[in-house]
Amino acid sequence: MLQALADGILTGSIIALGAIGLTLTMGILRFANFAHAEMITWGAYMALGALALMGPFMAPLGALSFGLPLIIAMVIAAVLTSLLALMIDHLVFRPLHGRPNDMTIVFSSFGVSLLVRMVVLLIFGGSAQYYSNTLQIAVPVAPGLRILPDQLFVLGFTIVTVISLHFFLQRTRLGLAMRALAENPTLARVNGIDTRVVIRWTWVIGASLAAVAGVLYGLTVQLRPEIGFHLLLPLFAAVIIGGVGNVFGAVVGGLIVGLAESLSVFIIPPSYKLAVPFIILLIVLYVRPTGIFGSAHHAGAK
């Protein structure tokens, strides 16, 4: 039980990172980006590529399975994932903006997600890969609870990222502009905000968070081209639980989904774990479609 709780929090924190990026883009760019989860896959594999180029020059840091190169690889992955997001926005989403059916963009993101996944598969192959072959010894933390040092790193890193993002959104002018744009794009423009610039930064932040989530996932689970495909539903569930556009809500939503997935094994066979986010999603949509923290403004209701 304790172990399942710990695993749930760990998975939940990775889902949360991805969900933050998705909720920001859904709130600010105003469409459900099906390709967001593939940014997670892309980021994870870009880090793998960067790591391969750097080589395992440095010894692991402390008890962790990786060294400084992985941190550098994570930064490179964030940059490359941001570039991919900006490229997709430029080539696909922006030209489709203003089509009579708003759902055309959502649908195009569905097509893009397939393309990104297949390109990753083509370059890196379909079998599972790992950043490091170093074997880690799980540290017993409490009776019946063992945690890998890497998992502690993931948790700590997520907490730091979420807090920094919170301060960025609350304290900087760009953060303020993003929040304003999420509420009312026209009024934001009237206030002198160049929304194109803010949108570009939104992509960069969303994609970077996705890349980080991908690397952390690869670190604690494994790398497969289907990472994103399997995370898409948990991400959407987390975003909707927390209320679209709500960063704090996405974190809580991510944790709820992660915990529900790992605790579900006590009720249903583990092979149905992937359906848990869908069940949660349905319940939220039936009971409280604005999400737990949803305000009337970002309400799911029309």
Binding site: L176, R179, A180, A182, E183, N184, T186, L187, V190, S295, H297
Partner: peptide, 10 residues
């Protein structure tokens, strides 16, 4: 603007 002329969430 006439309506929605302030950011209510800010």
């Amino acid at each position: 603007p006439q309506t929605d002329n302030v950011f209510t969430t800010l």
